[in-house]
Amino acid sequence: MNSNVLRLAASLVAGVIFGFGLSLSGMLDPKRVRAFLDITGDWNPSLAFVLGGAVFVSALGVLLTRRLQHPLFDTAFHLPDNRVIDRRLIVGSAIFGTGWGLVGLCPGPALASLSLGLPATMLFVAAMIAGMLVHDRLFARGAPVREAAKAGTDGRLSHPH
């Protein structure tokens, strides 16, 4: 079977499992997410178990990748090379967190929630895509491509062992 077909199939399976997990955990319900984030009001701590489960599964994934030379369907791990905590990262994180807290959705659950056909979710996803496009037009302007060209690479990083 073609490696691109395998990669797409693996992505589809992972996406379906992720979406099912979001649905099962209650992450598609903005009211439940806002109740989890509202620690001074009517706090609902149940999503802490979802967070704990996600951290556990992620830790297993990190441990597994440290044993691999490369991913199953690719030649290299694609890891970020910027490890600097700067103003841009802090401001972006604050905007992301504020939006998540106000609306009760972050990108993954928002995309999974599209299957419910709710107008508010559709508006949120449209605004999220518009924000990404504005960011790319105003701030990104091909910076990763230029940096990779300076480094003489295609932007891929080998996995650190």
Score class of each variant (00 low, 15 high):
140 A>S: 15
143 A>Q: 15
137 R>A: 12
112 A>S: 05
120 A>H: 03
107 P>Q: 08
119 P>F: 02
113 S>R: 05
103 V>Q: 02
148 A>K: 12
103 V>W: 02
143 A>Y: 13
124 F>H: 03
84 V>A: 12
94 A>F: 11
129 I>S: 04
146 R>N: 07
137 R>F: 14
139 F>V: 06
83 R>E: 13
129 I>W: 13
140 A>W: 10
130 A>H: 07
82 N>Y: 08
116 L>V: 06
97 G>P: 00
81 D>W: 09
143 A>L: 11
137 R>Q: 13
117 G>N: 06
86 D>C: 09
142 G>C: 08
99 G>Y: 02
100 W>Y: 06
114 L>S: 04
102 L>V: 08
86 D>Y: 09
91 V>G: 05
128 M>W: 11
116 L>K: 11
129 I>P: 01
145 V>S: 11
113 S>Y: 00
144 P>D: 13
102 L>G: 04
113 S>M: 05
122 M>Q: 15
92 G>I: 03
121 T>E: 01
120 A>C: 02
95 I>N: 04
135 H>F: 15
140 A>D: 14
134 V>W: 03
122 M>S: 05
121 T>W: 02
130 A>M: 06
95 I>T: 03
144 P>W: 14
118 L>S: 06
83 R>Q: 14
98 T>I: 14
122 M>K: 14
112 A>Q: 01
146 R>S: 08
147 E>L: 13
111 L>F: 14
143 A>N: 14
148 A>V: 08
87 R>T: 11
147 E>S: 09
92 G>H: 04
135 H>E: 14
143 A>E: 15
118 L>N: 06
108 G>C: 04
105 L>P: 00
118 L>Y: 09
127 A>T: 06
94 A>K: 02
106 C>W: 04
87 R>Q: 12
90 I>W: 05
100 W>K: 03
140 A>I: 12
115 S>C: 10
134 V>T: 09
97 G>R: 03
111 L>D: 01
142 G>F: 12
103 V>Y: 01
